[in-house]
Amino acid sequence: MTSLPDYPPRFDTDIVRPYWAALERGEINLPACSVCGEYQWYPFGFIRCHPEATLEWKLVPNKGTVFTFTRVHRSFLPNAAAKAPPYIAALVELDGIAGVRIPTVIINSESQGTRIGMRVRLNPQKRSTYTLPAFEPDPTP
C-alpha cells in the first residue's frame, strides 16, 4: 500500500487557482492562450506564444498515459508530516493534449505495477486542505 504526500499548495501565485479548484470537482482545467489555444503549462505571468493574449481555462480529458515515474523511498518535502514515502511520483500526458505533463502520484497500482506507457485515469484524493490529482490504472479499453 502506498501512502500520499500532504503538502498544500502555497498559492504563491493566484494563477494556478483554477487548476486546483477544478480538481475539487474531479476535473482537470488547464490554461491556454486566448489567441491560438496553445496550452500554457506551466502558467507563467506572461503568455509565451502571444504576449498580448490572456489566459483562457479549458476542461481537458482526465485520462492519459504515464510518461515517467519513480518510486520515492525518501521524500525531501520540508514538512516531515507531509512526506509519507513510499509513493510513486509520476508525470502523466493527457489524451490529445500535446506538450503538457501533469505531475502526479500513481495509486492503486500495487497488483499490476507501474510502467511507462501505462493507461491511467484521474482519481482525485482528498488531503488536509486540498485535493491531490492522483491517477490510477485505467482498466477500460
Binding site: 504526500p5 502555497r10 519513480t70 509513493y87
Partner: peptide
C-alpha cells in the same frame, strides 16, 4: 510554480528529478 504544482504531489527534490 514548483511550490504550487509539484510539491503538493510530492514531486520534489533533485534526487526525484533525476530519478524521473
Amino acid at each position: 510554480l514548483k511550490a504550487d504544482l509539484e510539491m503538493p504531489v510530492g514531486y520534489y527534490g533533485q534526487p526525484l528529478y533525476f530519478a524521473a
